[in-house]
Nucleic acid binder design. Structure first.
Lengths: 135, 135
DNA sequence: TTAAATAGGACTAAAATGGTCGTATATTAA
DNA sequence: TTAATATACGACCATTTTAGTCCTATTTAA
């Protein structure tokens, strides 16, 4: 409970590695997959998501790969998480995730307000920590 | 991702309700189940777990039910969470959950240290907030 | 033109979660 | 002493989520 998904873990490992290399260096999915023992196909799709959000930039074809899309101190952990999971999928309690009426005790529920406080603090941490800090 | 389980939600709702009643009041699982639309069998087992840890006290038989096991300002959210999920099941990253060698990239993983910082802060929040604060 | 690389949809397997069922036991009151 | 009401608890099942695989297409450098 309260886990980050493997996808997010893999995504963080990958983008951290890219950030740790010289900016001119183009990193391939295969290199990352080998170095960190991450299933290639999974990783490929995670990188695609990061690329779609502009966190990294992809080059196709032979000698292609990935580089950072912007400076590592401009990439927040929350950017990575949201790129992979979608913002709405990250929440302590389910009723915040989707429309309230998906929860049939929304009205009578007495814990959602206190827990949102904690939620906000957690969000804040992921907003404040950048990739540059974890390199 | 990053969700509390329904079990924990139900447990918090239940213990909060018990805490909100006069101390002499004995609350049954059925009352809670009805009031908050929580499946009875689920709730029953959650209450048993809380009871085993002494967070609440159970009375069996006719006119039985539950009362708080100690003052509501002495019951931390983390107590409730751990009673229901077990301490080891609450962690941002999987490798902290069990023995490290369950993760085959434990050695090469480069994100576990930064994330444990965040983990510690989250744990801290659940340790500091008590049931009395959410009544 | 070939090889190496990303792009991406469809699918499957495995694990976690949520929920149910059946039975036992305890307690009170009629 | 019996009936009714309550908790105790293991076993089980269904659903959802997560993790992982497969296949094909496209891009591009040499």
């Amino acid at each position: 409970m309260l886990h980050l998904s493997k996808k997010v873990e893999y995504g963080l490992i990958a983008i951290r590695h890219i950030a740790s290399q010289p900016v001119s260096e183009v990193i391939t999915a295969k290199e990352l997959s080998d170095k960190y023992q991450i299933p290639f196909d999974m990783l490929a799709k995670i990188l695609q998501k990061l690329s779609k959000k502009g966190l990294i930039v992809s080059y196709q074809g032979v000698r292609g790969g990935y580089v950072l899309g912007r400076r590592s101190d401009q990439i927040k952990l929350s950017d990575v998480i949201y790129a992979i999971e979608g913002k709405q999928n990250v929440s302590l309690i389910n009723c915040e995730k989707e429309n309230p009426d998906s929860c049939n005790i929304y009205q009578t529920c007495t814990i959602k307000n206190p827990l949102s406080k904690i939620q906000n603090i957690i969000n804040g941490m992921f907003d404040e920590m950048t990739i540059s800090e974890i390199v």
